[in-house]
Design a protein around this nucleic acid. Structure first.
Lengths: 342, 342
DNA sequence: ACGCTTTAGGAAACCGGTGTCAATCTTGCC
DNA sequence: GGCAAGATTGACACCGGTTTCCTAAAGCGT
């Protein structure tokens, strides 16, 4: 601080070199912890760096190294809490490194989607990107990113890619366990509010539901399935359809928490109560699960840890295969489930 | 595309210059839309650029220009939906520009908070940062950012700074209108679930509540106020306290939606219903407001537009004073309010 | 004491852009 | 036709780092 002028971090490697009486290359060696350096010299240089508050210019470094330290996050996820948790997980990984997180919400319905993403990656020369579902399920998009020479990791609910490019939760197994729980409580008519066609997560969760029913030898005609778009209203409508059927379910598994909240409204609108008349289970364990009434039984997946793992794969691609790729889920029982009335 | 080799955007300004038979400076002029350029030359160069898919290296540009094109977002906001809406608003502003959005969730309780933020700004050499509440209310933090020579904009609910560095909503007036609405419905005992001490927004919203009661000549003893921390549980507890008082309110204004959801639970836990026994109004109009039961009457503020405005102030600092700084709120009546029972 | 290897550190080129300033080519005008 | 003014374009240094290559000094065996 002594010499002032460190406002805006304006000092450069040349200033350090001059003040320390060494060449800029030597300063560079200090910064990069080169081992072939006399300890006396190193300490002298480090003292000057601390004194004037020198911080290397990342743009200059990026230019010289022909790479940079920006991680991109591409998403079009309706669930804000999950996206933000993911961002925090990435931060856990890059804190105290020189990496930074650049975000890019996109619109998956836009015809310019691919152009948009291509521009994003090319323009910023990203080191790597993380792709959140449902975009992560798009193989064409992954191919685009790969061809751009950009590292990438896809977040998914199924084995979409090899483990170096994937961080996965096992939705099918998780739903299986949740529905098993309903069966153990005595439910025999368990409806499914499925996610939208084309979503891999929707498929996996539906199969998990099927697995559980099949294992218990329970009928599961198609009248017990209604689909939504992972939104509140669609969940309400889908549940209303199930409840209006000839043989209404005593329990409903909704493929995410938001639709579960919608299902809860649908039950109430028919003058019924949760859980006494209808039990409900959601998926995700987002903030809404604990804040609606009654608190929602759901499945939590460790998104923050998964995000950290994804970021580490990009930062250390060589050790990527060793980073954990398949993460376990946790069943979270709350008040929205009880035994069936009969 | 003809020449290939545009993978990873590897072509440089030199390649373009050579292929077009001009100097790199001329290519630079084309990129920067310099007016003193022969149209024939420009078209020739543009053809080459399109042909090989050349994209300028932002790091090299940043280095030469001694500035860069990264906008930072600093936040420690409990409300995911708001943070994400904000990010989308910023994207609205920077789409099709060379700017990118770098995010940095921080922990305002951490003793290393200032160090963390300083490092973030210095290390990435950010062009400017946007600071979300409640961090935006910290003048010391703003001073730090200013001394770092970094442009900044603070989001706030009160005039915290001059208009070049502020994007503001008028919470006090907004709450005043919401509480006036309760009074117009006939309520005379209106409780307040206040935000935490030290939050400017909490202060403004409390004053808005006071203004409305005072204007209507209604008593507002301190027993009608209970404070929370903008979290669900604290809202539930605060509301429980109000409902347990000697003279319980017939309506409650909660300083944000999450606490309003908590208040709703508190009402139910006493065996009462919303809105018949107690009316509730929240603040923010986040996703939760429409998804809880009954749908929550609340106040919406145009965060996405505000975010866009904030980003524009950073991108064009010279025209900043002209950018809109004070944004109007919108009262959103839903089913959680009705006339008092008596 | 001498040649050889090893170690420490510097000079200069380079990464891919931009700024300055001068050179060249038109053009208009007398 | 000659010349000044204006329009176009290029040569070269520079931004702040890293890499390559090289030199000087020190250590070491004989």
């Amino acid at each position: 601080m002594a010499l002032g002028r460190n406002r805006a971090g304006k000092s450069t490697i040349n200033d350090v070199a001059r003040l320390a009486g060494v060449s800029k290359k030597t300063v560079s060696r200090v910064i990069n912890r080169s081992p072939l350096l006399n300890i006396t010299t190193r300490e002298k240089v480090e003292a000057v760096i601390a004194d004037i508050g020198y911080v290397p210019n990342p743009q200059a470094r990026a230019l010289a190294l022909r790479r940079n330290f920006l991680l991109g996050l591409i998403h079009d996820n309706p669930n804000a809490q999950m996206v933000l948790n993911f961002q925090e997980g990435v931060l856990d990984a890059i804190r105290d490194t020189e990496f930074a997180l650049v975000v890019r919400p996109v619109d998956r319905a836009s015809p310019k989607l691919f152009d948009d993403i291509r521009k994003f990656i090319e323009q910023q020369r990203l080191h790597g990107v993380m792709i959140l579902p449902p975009l992560s399920e798009n193989d064409e998009l992954a191919a685009l990113v790969r061809n751009l020479g950009c590292h990438y990791v896809r977040m998914g609910s199924a084995p979409l890619d090899d483990s170096a490019h994937l961080v996965q939760s096992n939705d099918r197994q998780a739903v299986r366990e949740a529905v098993d729980y309903l069966i153990a409580q005595g439910h025999r008519h368990i409806g499914l509010v499925a996610g939208p066609d084309g979503f891999r997560s929707a498929f996996e969760r539906r199969e998990g539901w099927r697995d559980a029913l099949a294992a218990a030898g329970l009928d599961h005609g198609s009248e017990q399935i209604a689909s939504g778009h992972y939104t509140f209203e669609s969940g309400r409508d889908a549940a209303a359809q199930l409840l209006g059927s000839a043989h209404p379910p005593t329990a409903i598994f909704a493929s995410n928490d938001v639709m579960a909240a919608g299902a809860l409204h649908a039950v109430r609108e028919r003058g019924l109560t949760v859980p006494d008349d209808v039990s409900i289970i959601g998926f995700d364990d987002t903030a809404i699960a604990a804040t609606i009434w009654p608190p929602l039984t759901t499945v939590r997946w460790p998104i923050r840890d998964m995000a950290r793992s994804a970021a580490l794969k990009l930062i250390h691609p060589e050790t990527a295969p060793h980073e954990q790729s398949l993460f376990p889920t946790i069943f979270v029982p709350r008040a929205s489930v009880t035994k069936p009335r009969d």
